[in-house]
Design a protein around this nucleic acid. Structure first.
Lengths: 151, 151
DNA sequence: CCAATAGACTACTTAATCTATAGGGTTAAA
DNA sequence: TTTAACCCTATAGATTAAGTAGTCTATTGG
């Protein structure tokens, strides 16, 4: 399962993508409207800022804004940063590769080969889905139409 | 990432599938040959027995055996039991479905729709891969040949 | 300049989970 | 009846997750 941090980050980003044209958005607005714990969200937004995914303005009239176009912000990136590697085992991770300590035969290992396939299809979906995609998906009524975005 | 429990369970099961014709296998054999911590492995094997995936014989000449054909033991089942749901968010889990507490619009949520797709392709692979598949994959030399098993 | 507003940053706390390890108890074959 | 094996429970130590608290810093506007 995803950590709350990762899920909250995604929710906040989708909210900000939708509010893109409205100037800086207050932490309090996001927290209240999305029902997220405010102080916890603060940390998450700060981390997103340090990642250059968001930018912020302090003081009166301040708040948070996307630092890039929604089409340039991938779900995969957010999930990796807040939840860790997509891979189910370290030996198939691209971003955090590590051989299993107990591994006897890396090349032949069947578990590894299957897990690599799982990682690859997961990465294909999550890296192919941006905030722009997510906003479009939320606008579509049918699940089938929504699925079109990543088939 | 998978828990060690889940990974060790899979490793032990593949080992037992390969040793299928040789009668009961000692915990010590599995632990030593696969480089798994013995007492930890004991717990895992016991749990697999309670799941009716393994059976055991006590006393001299005893050990562990598969309780079913390798083709009837799915990776997905083992991963779910030892690692939890395949889904990245509870609201797309089949085995542990739960609405997110902060969810505003279940039907429209884009994050949910994408995560459902991820869960579905993951489940398709892991539920479609049995111990028999894994043993066959380990016998094949090329990664491409191995991939054939779940395309 | 000052006061109010809003994010920035650091430090905790609490709870849960994971990864083992320890140490007997029970069963059954020889 | 001895002994090789699995059975079962308890517990410890480490790590991570989720959230809270409090202070600091920057900006705006009177």
């Amino acid at each position: 399962m995803l950590s709350m941090r990762a899920k909250y980050a995604l929710k906040a980003l989708v909210y900000l993508a939708k509010a893109k044209s409205q100037g800086p958005v207050l932490i309090g607005d996001i927290a209240e409207s999305q029902k997220l714990p405010r102080k916890f969200l603060e940390q998450i937004l700060l981390e997103l800022k340090n990642l250059r995914v968001l930018k912020s303005r302090q003081g009166k009239g301040g708040g948070y804004l996307l630092a890039k176009e929604p089409s340039q912000i991938e779900m995969g990136h957010i999930v990796r940063v807040f939840n860790g590697p997509l891979a189910l085992v370290p030996c198939v991770s691209v971003t955090a590769f590590e051989k299993c300590e107990e591994c006897l035969d890396f090349a032949q290992c069947g578990i590894r080969r299957v897990m690599k396939k799982v990682r690859d299809v997961t990465a294909e979906i999550l890296d192919g889905t941006t905030l722009e995609t997510l906003v479009a998906i939320e606008a579509s009524e049918s699940d089938e139409a929504a699925l079109m975005y990543f088939i």
